[in-house]
Design a protein around this nucleic acid. Structure first.
Ligand SMILES: [Mn+2]
Ligand SMILES: [Mn+2]
Ligand SMILES: [Zn+2]
Ligand SMILES: [Zn+2]
Lengths: 158, 158
DNA sequence: TTCATATTCAGGAATGATTCTTATTACTAT
DNA sequence: ATAGTAATAAGAATCATTCCTGAATATGAA
């Protein structure tokens, strides 16, 4: 499973009745160019630097379209949507203090879906594992701030 | 891990500066009385039959409060929140055709969090596994409707 | 190249779930 | 009974997202 080349992406994106506009291409590049699992708003701000006239609606429309094409993936998160340029199967860790989402390097047993499917009667196509807790830097920060609510860092929202 | 008695729930709910109103109690009973992982709106409609003057805002406020007390749990779902009266650790299967969420009877290795935590440097407090695919009845229905988009059943939204 | 057509765009209005505000009501403890 | 606190109903406000419009633009055939 290797990263698709730009050429490959062009091919996936260029299909009858579908254009590759700068807006669309740039949005794809921005999402692929970060591992921060950004929100639509974050992508919008990033893309705006190069295409100042782009509208937020265009960002939303294209993020959805790119996810349907399978070129990016949409994460299941509470409140607002987040996107992931890494389409390889991988799991996530969410820090409950700073809100950041990290990719897990270690791979959890990929046959889990098949095993559970066989045992339950459900036809399982895929599964998702999310871990929650504190990231390394938040463990430190939480240690310092013993006894005070004051130093709770503002939550990230990439 | 056994179901808490009503007495125990009363104790958890009754703490300094916190009352047990009929609204609150009834909302808890409704969520505990179903395994359908209902939305706030569904709970509202159910509670309304017994307390016709209750407001939707009250339902939202109490669902959140009950989740904070640990008497119910809030699920991570896209678009709108769902609640679960079963606070025991268990996993879920979501049918992508009818939208229903089922409890998994089989328990997936509960030491997963500890194992991954040790390997990644994250301090993991808990994790969540969600399976996706088709439930038994939707597999049947999808089989019948070969070649036609027409018979897609309307999505449940308890 | 020119033309016809379909796609995409920007901008802004609309939607829908959730939270917030406020005046009123219901408990609880004295 | 009284005072003080917590919770409520009703509805306004918020926020992310989707939808709608008319204009702009890419594409492919002639
Ligand atoms: Mn990722
Ligand atoms: Mn459940
Ligand atoms: Zn953190
Ligand atoms: Zn189903």
């Amino acid at each position: 499973m290797k990263a698709p080349s730009d050429f490959q992406l062009q091919a996936d994106l260029r299909r009858p009745g579908r254009r590759v506009t700068n807006q669309r291409w740039l949005i794809l590049e921005v999402v692929r160019g970060t591992d921060s699992h950004p929100t639509a708003e974050w992508v919008y701000q990033k893309v705006r630097r190069r295409l100042p006239r782009i509208s937020l609606g265009t960002v939303y429309r294209n993020l959805k379209l790119l996810a349907e094409e399978g070129l990016i993936q949409e994460l299941e998160s509470r409140g607002f949507g987040r996107y992931d340029g890494n389409t390889a199967r991988h799991d996530h860790f969410t820090c409950q203090r700073c809100g950041r989402i990290f990719d897990l390097e270690v791979r959890v047993d990929p046959s889990l879906g098949r095993r559970i499917g066989a045992r339950t009667g459900f036809t399982i196509t895929h599964h998702r594992i999310e871990f929650y807790g504190l990231c390394a830097s938040c463990v430190l920060a939480a240690g310092h701030a013993k006894g005070g609510e004051t130093s709770k860092r503002a939550r990230h929202r990439p």
